[in-house]
Amino acid sequence: MQEYNDKRVFTGGRRSMLVFNKVVSALAKAGISLMGSRILSVPGRKSGEWRSNPVNLLVVDGERYLVAPRGHVQWVRNLRVSTEGQLRIGRKVETFRAEELSDADKPDILRAYLKKWAWEVGAFFGDDVKPDSPTETLLHVAPGFPVFKVHPA
């Protein structure tokens, strides 16, 4: 059984996660979405060069969200500065504006995200955080998981 550390990264599975991300990216570039996957592109906050990562686009009650299951990673920091990015699936590119949610507004979104993708990202949330976790638990972990509402540009 693999263990995870406080940074929510598998100690023994980092290589397999990188391979998985490459596969998801290749599929999205080819126009095949794996349960909502997209390629997120955001200009770098220092260089201005576009940076890309695979992400899971979540739809809840007709609204779209990006959740960062690995926490305050580079794409999150870049999106906070630029507040705009692009989502790509195949040749279709959508420019969007991002609005970061407050921690108080995250529990329902985190719950929906875990319901859909716990099989992929659940380990980053820890053993105590599940789709059916109480709201208090989700509020407790909310500061560690940035969530952005996606608006058309």
Rank of each mutant, 00 (worst) to 15 (best):
M1D: 11
M1Y: 10
Q2T: 14
E3K: 15
K7N: 15
T11H: 13
G12S: 14
R14Q: 13
R15E: 10
S16D: 11
S16L: 14
L18Y: 09
V19A: 04
F20K: 13
F20A: 11
V23R: 03
V24K: 02
S25R: 01
A30N: 08
A30H: 04
S33G: 08
L34Q: 02
I39E: 01
S41D: 01
G44N: 06
R45N: 04
S47Y: 12
G48Y: 12
S52N: 02
V55K: 08
L57Q: 11
L57G: 06
G62E: 03
E63T: 05
L66E: 12
V67G: 07
H72R: 11
V76P: 00
R80N: 01
T83F: 07
E84M: 08
E84R: 13
E84Q: 09
G85K: 01
L87F: 08
I89R: 15
E94C: 06
F96G: 01
F96Q: 03
R97D: 02
E99H: 14
L101G: 02
A104L: 13
K106R: 15
K106A: 08
L110C: 03
A112G: 08
E120G: 07
V121D: 09
G122Y: 02
F124D: 15
D127A: 04
D127I: 01
S133Y: 05
P134E: 10
P134R: 10
E136K: 10
L138H: 05
H140D: 10
H140W: 03
V141L: 03
P146M: 02
H151M: 07
P152M: 01
